[in-house]
């Protein structure tokens, strides 16, 4: 599967996709690497080309709880787009990861200077957020649990 055809990049028109990729550099993370810490500065973002990244929340006295994993084609990080530009989750590589890495500030600047490009990128990020929100709400239903709740 091509990361360019599917996932976040696949949702962008070719012109906007090519422009966004001019800001990209290649990045590799060994397994178990922490990519960013919860509440840290959201100054970059990534498009995952291969591997698996776990999003987690720090829980005092326990190991960080994994709330979701992201893989090939997924956008890693959207807190860079909205103030206060702080990560609301942490991210750690479950497996070795290759990704396109972007500095947030030049991308935000390009979005502000070119409204068509900015709208396209913002819509794609919003779509990612909407899909993750929908999936999270569905998971809240505890669909696979005992019918009617409780235990059998």
């Amino acid at each position: 599967m091509s990361v360019v055809r599917h996932g976040f990049l696949g949702a962008l028109a070719p012109g906007h996709r090519d422009r966004l990729l001019t800001f990209a550099r290649e990045a590799c993370f060994p397994a178990e690497t922490r990519v960013f810490e919860e509440a840290g500065a959201a100054d970059r973002f990534w498009l995952i080309r291969s591997g698996l990244v776990a999003l987690d929340i720090h829980v005092p006295g326990r190991r960080a709880a994994v709330v979701e994993t992201l893989g090939e084609g997924d956008l890693l990080g959207w807190s860079w787009m909205f103030e206060p530009y702080r990560w609301h989750l942490g991210a750690r590589c479950h497996a070795a990861v290759t990704a396109y890495e972007f500095d947030a500030e030049p991308v935000r600047l390009a979005c502000a200077e070119d409204p068509a490009f900015g709208l396209a990128v913002t819509r794609c990020v919003a779509e990612v957020i909407a899909r993750r929100l929908k999936a999270t709400r569905t998971r809240l239903l505890d669909l696979y649990g005992f019918p009617g709740g409780g235990t059998p």
């Binding site: 994993t69 893989g71 497996a95 999936a135 998971r139």
Partner: peptide, 9 residues
Amino acid sequence: TGEVGLVTT
């Protein structure tokens, strides 16, 4: 160490 999320992902 596997995936976490809704099956649609």
